[in-house]
Design a protein around this nucleic acid. Sequence first.
RNA 1: GGGCGCUUAGCUCAGUUGGCUAGAGCAUCUCGUUUACACCGAGAGGGUCGGGGGUUCGAGUCCCUCAGCGCCCA
Length: 1050
Amino acid sequence: MTTEPQTATAPNPEDIPSRFDFESAEKEIYANWQSGGWFHAEPDSSQKPYTIVIPPPNVTGALHLGHALNNTLQDVMIRLKRMQGFNALWMPGTDHAGIATQARVEKRIKDQEGKSRHDLGREELVKRIFQWKEQYEARIIGQLKQMGCSCDWDRTRFTLDEVCARAVRHTFFDLFRKSFIYRGKRLVNWDTYLGTTVSDDEVENKTVKGNFWHFMYPVIDPQPGEPPHVIVATTRPETMLGDTAVAVHPDPAAALSKVESELNVKLKKAAASEIEGIEQQIEALKTRRTEMLPALEQLREMANDGRMLMLPLMDRPIPIVTDIWAKPELGSGCVKITPAHDPNDYEVGKRCSLPMINIMNADGTLNAESGEYQSLTMKQARKAVVGDLEALGLVKEIEDREIEMPVSDRSGTPIEPYLTDQWFVKMDTLAQSAMDAVESGRVKITPARYSKGYLSWLGEKRDWPISRQLWWGHQIPVWSIPCPTQADCDATREKVSGLSAFSADIASVEIETSSEPDPEKRKQLGLPDFTLHVCVQDESTELEQQLESIGLVREEDVLDTWFSSALWPHSTLGWPEKTSELDYFYPTSALITSRDIITLWVARMVIMGLNNLGDIPFDSVFIHPKILDGNGETMSKSKGNGIDPLDVIDKFGADALRFGMADLTTETQDVRLPVSYECPNEKCQHQIPHTTKNRVLPSLACPKCKETFSTQWAESEADLAFPRGPVTCERFEVARNFTNKLWNASRFAMLNLEGYSPAPIDEAHLTVEDRWILSRLVTVASTVTEALENYRFASATRTLYDFAWDNFCSFFVEILKDRFADPELRPHAQRMLVFAMDQLLRLLHPVMPFITEAIWQQLNRFAPQRGLESVADATECLIGASWPALDARWSNADIETQFARFQSGLGSLREIRARQNLSPKKEVKFSIRCDQAYADSLSPMASYFKSMAAAELTSMGPDVVPPETNATVASDGIEMFVDLEGLIDKAAEIKRLEKEQKKLEGNIMGKEKKLSNEKFVSSAPAEIVERERVSLGKLKDQLASVITALKKYQ
RNA sequence: GGGCGCUUAGCUCAGUUGGCUAGAGCAUCUCGUUUACACCGAGAGGGUCGGGGGUUCGAGUCCCUCAGCGCCCA
């Protein structure tokens, strides 16, 4: 059903700007999409769902180009699926990002007000962080909107909001009740500044200058022949206060031999430059064997005899133990063991059942266990300990040495290994379920190689430490009470179990047995035999008060951020409520993220989805490349090399940003994006490449024009007053130029659509180029669809770019110019142009939604009804249009070959024109000697040579006689003669022919060699051999023709 | 130490299962403002596919090895 055509009158060229004004268009278009409800999805059983949950950006700060990439790809998929008729939901939201955000806000408060979090208190700090969150959440969402992201904003979630909090409580309760959650001691990375644990991935190792101190520990009652001291070396002398043993290798001779043989193996393979160093090492080992081995073996015997050392300063007897951690090839061959303050020593402590003495308070000062050094900081203690040992004459040597120092990523302070109580999730069963999901193919990871890391990480089944000593996050819903004795424990348990919550099964109790096995020691340290923990499912003031009145106290710690992120695919859909959304949209369809959080996040979502719903969270995971800067470094906030996508949008437009992003999404794992500032001074516009220094400055001076400009980091009024220097990158220029090309193609259409009348096309009227563009459209549409559905984004963008520019603009539109000039051909030509544009716009929409929508609206003004075999009203918005589904019968290889002949002929003509330096207006005549079939296939396009190469085809066929003075081009079994009477530049022509001759001879030789190789002819597939033969024949014809032509001039 | 990548034109990258003369964009050079577009058009130059070995009729593509770079996990 169509209404009367209403074609707008043609605009004047000056009515349509020759550049797309993306700035104003983007805002308006986005607002229209939103008000049209296009982003919102409701469960609807008549449609298939397609769901993506956003990797929630951290509210730590603004988004950078890495996020732009991530979200572009998601929006491309969502828009594609929406057009394909799916009920597409893109679930948006943000992540509270525990430590990262708290650290950032704390630092800000410290800088601006000089206050610590303890000055503010928990409630006030959380309030402040919430204010920060509001600000950055708004900014992040604003950025996503400007990028064109079609998220269902009505459903926006935050990992700390009520819905998510409820999901967290229910999950925690469930795991607690299944006894998957426990509390235990663990050596953690302690940030003494923030007063919290930081995870391994938040620790950075720095190489700094330090010392290696050699101390002498006296032997208690040395027997005759025994040394009076044992020498140990350390880079952290202050930890000796917590030493509980000295270790020596159980078989030093064997250990030395092993090292030596390893060195010998290395020596054999070593490069010349390394040989000397390795030989020296082997020599040193030999010396060591003769000089030190007896002493080490003696120490080993002493250890076996249970001999003791006196720990200086503390006057504590400590044993000599044997453990493989002691390296006989290093230092004295003995190593001091501080189990509570060193990860390796901790393992030794566990192996040798050593006491673990914690000498540090949470704030980094020393505690009562360090005797008279109590309340010094670790740094002060170092000085004091070294000084005191020197006074005692127990320092043997101090070496200068470079040491690896772990530093907190968040605060920059050195990490102290620290033994504390932490909550854990038992991973064995849970991890196995997530491994099965990927191994069985229920969750498909693309590119497949990333499954390996996922599986091997899960395969370790290491328990997940989930407590963080922070205030920003989900507070652990556990109330605890120490029970000194079994009797206390039973009594408390009885009291607690009597509460109504227990009969309602919304609270659960667990008993923790003290980790200190020695009852005497427990008494000494005041440790209870048991601790009773109660976990409460839902927030309940009443129950909490009841528990507290019994004497239970709530755990202060909060949960690891990833705990709530792990629930994201179902918590956002309302779980644990049985919502219709959950029922309809879960499991989600795709998860698109970057590789650094495959284990931290992806694996845990699979675990939690399976645990909470018994189903995987998503069918498919796509891991996209990481964006590196021009120096090959990953973009991150801490480095300051992250680029605000809005900078790019301001300069190039959102479509260019998106196209650029999709275009660099190949299957590689990283991609470099060298960026520069552009001097905003109109007359200068100098490009200033980013360096490690200038990329973090709030303002800088242009080295060329010396004018100062501001950057994205500008905060002060003074900096903001300077003009903003945008960030540029070649990739986006290419993309921007592409949008402009598209804009102008549509501009051409608008200027030529007056009098457009919609009608189904008559196949009889289709020209070769019509059939060609239709055939190309079928191929391009299927290539793009297949590429996008398999996450090959760059392949899709390149196909589209080439098609739009090289096929559509450079040929189809160019040819149409001739046809528009002819009133008889015009109506059909208009319909073809309209149809081709319509299809192209649809194909480009997922990647470049704004400009395609803008052009669609214009096209709707001039050609509201369109179609190929039948005509229909176009949808009002492109976002809601259907994905192209052109009948495959339009695909036509013969037509494409036929058209390729025209293109090749045109190319030859243009090349000759350029070589001969003919002015564009100078018309030439040419003829083609070819068989009749070829002539017939080319003749429909003969007239186009005139407009596209200023060349007139005078004759074509088998009997063509070349003109006296001509330039000859032979290719594909034909000869083309360009009449150059009175025009020829002989030297140029000879040069061209000689070059051609050389090239042909080279190729012919290669092919002849190949074909004369009997093995090739007999082994290679027949079609390959045949292809080579045909190709050789043609090359020989061409060469003959070139030689004939050359002879004429020589 | 283990794992995963990368090395192709001056730069940034394509190159599905080995098979026509290894491609693109930018940059460079030449020509051109013809009424969609100079954010444009026409043309050109530029590569022993990191080195070495192997498998094969045939290797940028598969295998081994060496070198350099990056990331992840210890």
